[in-house]
Simulated assay, not measured.
Amino acid sequence: MYPERSEAARIDTDADQAALATGPLATGPSDVLALVTSTSPWSPAAVAGVSLAARWGSNLTGCFMDPSTRGLHDTDREPTVLGLLMDPPTHDADAHAAFGAFARQSGVCEATWAASHTGLARTLRHLGAWHDLAVVERDVVDTSGVLDVLGEAILGSQLPCLILPPRWSGGFGFGHVVIGCNGSIESIRAIHAALPFLRMAKQVTLVDGDVRMSYDAESCLPHFDPFVYLLRHHVTAKPQYIRASSDVAGDILLKKARDAQIDLLVMGAFGHSPARERVFGGATRRVLEEADIPVLMQH
């Protein structure tokens, strides 16, 4: 015969069961990084970072990217000619105070300010060591540097990156989210990183392009089922299936995004490094170049 539970223990257990029945509270990343390109007015990354950090109760870091050096590759160590000609920035103190005030007014409890005077890849890899999510504007570099400079930063940092399209001024409700998953490690990591966004979404569509590979069976690796994983995290996804090459898959994802008027696309950032250069896979390259909605990517 088991001893009778105390009233306090019974109340605690009942509360635990109620919490399980209603699902977990919406939690987000502890530390959000916004790579800021403009302070007056605040650039889209700053606005998005403040909005998300306030919603999740996250710590926020705003980092101003020096325009004269942000295009440097990770292997570059010398300043550009333009950088040598420019005067050192003097607005850091004022920007620090302004960013703190902007964040507090929006409901962010902890906000810090920094400035980077080196390349995007080195900055993101360094700051990514103590952040859980980076918010980056696609036009943080010019069009010619999207694939090599921004690509190097995304692939090198291995940090979840919310990429905002040029001149983004939309909201950050993320009512309808589409996930592109092909069973790769990159896409699985992206789904895991996207959970805070998925919990906020009213509708989630999972475009599953997973092909059961023979080497999975030979290596005895457990299979990742994205639908089961999402259900475990109280996210119900509507399934869609495609079988297409990497290049075509990018076009399909973009078409679905436009037709369904989605708010966020989630996908893995696929890449490799021939001759020491970071090179995107076909679907990743297509989406990064042409998406006109926010894209959450992770390598």
Rank of each mutant, 00 (worst) to 15 (best):
S6A: 03
A9L: 04
D12Q: 11
T13F: 00
A15N: 03
D16Q: 12
A21P: 00
A21E: 11
T22L: 05
L25G: 03
T27L: 12
P29V: 07
V32L: 07
A34P: 03
T37D: 10
T39S: 15
T39Q: 11
W42I: 05
S43D: 10
P44D: 09
V47A: 14
A48P: 01
G49W: 07
V50L: 00
L52N: 02
N59M: 06
G62Y: 08
P67V: 07
G71Y: 04
D74Q: 08
T75I: 02
T75S: 04
D76E: 15
T80Y: 14
V81T: 14
G83V: 11
P88R: 15
T90I: 10
A93G: 01
A98I: 04
A98E: 13
F102I: 01
F102L: 04
F102K: 02
F102P: 02
A103V: 09
V108W: 05
C109R: 01
T112F: 05
A115T: 09
A115H: 14
S116G: 10
T123K: 06
T123S: 14
R125S: 10
R125V: 14
H131C: 10
D132V: 01
L133R: 03
S144G: 14
G145W: 05
G151R: 01
E152W: 01
I154V: 15
I154C: 07
I154N: 01
G156A: 14
G156D: 05
S157D: 03
L164T: 05
P165T: 10
W168F: 15
G171M: 05
G173L: 13
E186H: 10
I188N: 12
I191G: 03
I191E: 02
A194D: 06
R199V: 04
M200T: 08
A201R: 04
K202L: 09
V204D: 04
V207C: 06
G209W: 08
R212C: 13
D216C: 06
D216V: 13
A217N: 10
C220G: 13
C220R: 13
L221Q: 15
H223K: 13
F224N: 10
D225T: 08
V228H: 12
Y229F: 15
H233T: 08
H234F: 10
V235N: 06
T236D: 11
T236R: 13
I242E: 11
S245N: 09
S246L: 01
S246N: 04
A249N: 06
D259I: 02
Q261W: 02
I262M: 02
L264N: 06
L265M: 12
M267E: 02
M267G: 03
G271Q: 01
H272A: 12
P274V: 00
A275R: 09
R278Y: 01
R278P: 00
V279R: 07
A283Q: 09
P294D: 06
M297I: 10
